[in-house]
Write a protein that binds this DNA or RNA. Structure first.
Lengths: 158, 158
DNA sequence: TATTGTTATACTCTATAACTATA
DNA sequence: TATAGTTATAGAGTATAACAATA
């Protein structure tokens, strides 16, 4: 599948600087680039806690919502049930949360943070807040508030 | 790995409505959610053209930058070279672009849109622009401009 | 020696089907 | 009959190492 080398060097155009202006005008393109940039920093700063973004999200919801079920986690975070199983199992093995039978629904399992889970999340959430200010250092506090508001407007009413 | 069913139904908390307020205050969380929502619509509306977001991005850059190299595409879009190969090969097989030797660098290959490639992108880009207005219908034109500007500010200076 | 494009490959993420136990 | 949780598995997306051809 090599290019046709028999073609003589004719009037073929050469690109010096790439024009990406069309893509840069699209919301999807910019939202994706921004989210990748932010998540990249997040990944590096959360590595010491052994938490990927998805682990952070799950454990954060468990800490702020003791007794939350897997189903509620999936709905809140847009994770499919089969993909949550190992996530929760790993956090349980690390002693960061416990599973107890749901008091009112025998099918469900309530997820509860352990003392260690609360302690870790307290640290991790403070790191996340600091990181937030840092990542968005190019934005004023007002700009950051506006950005969050507009982003929520884009996906909230789905 | 079942929950301990011997535990009697004690004072275990039950979550009625999930509190996600901490996550909703994080830029990364909101950027990710927004980008997934926008890309989901994009995916559905571009399916008739047989273009995923990444195909759209690649072909758009080729159309707007005839002669662009794989390396330039990778740098512009944050794709790793090995993962671009099959992408370009597929677009070539569909007759949407052609590969010709680079006039000034024997190692490189220039990518050039075919007439069919230009025609398809013309349609696809008009659909993308329409979709843009639609997806962001909850935002005013001013809000959309502000959102794009702030998103670029987040990732631009990386 | 460095760079472009490529192959092979591995790892993660996401998605679907099917099962169990409870409601 | 429907739902919560689980298993197994398939597919897409993303990553690294190593190579040939050219600079």
């Amino acid at each position: 599948m090599a290019a046709d080398r028999r073609t003589p060097p004719r009037d073929l155009p050469v690109v010096e600087t790439v024009d990406a202006s069309f893509l840069e005008g699209l919301l999807g393109y910019n939202a994706r680039r921004a989210s990748l940039a932010v998540i990249d920093v997040f990944l590096r700063r959360m590595a010491p806690y052994g938490l990927r973004p998805v682990d952070f999200s799950v454990l954060s919801l468990v800490v702020h919502n003791p007794g939350i079920t897997s189903r509620q986690l999936c709905t809140s975070l847009g994770i499919l049930p089969p993909n949550l199983v190992n996530l929760v199992a790993a956090l349980e093995r690390r002693g960061l949360l416990e599973r107890h039978p749901h008091p009112r629904d025998g099918r469900a399992t309530g997820l509860h943070p352990t003392a260690e889970g609360r302690r870790l999340m307290d640290e991790a959430e403070r790191t996340a807040a600091a990181l937030e200010a840092e990542t968005a250092a190019r934005l004023s506090a007002t700009e950051l508030r506006t950005l969050l508001k507009l982003l929520r407007k884009v996906y909230a009413a789905d």
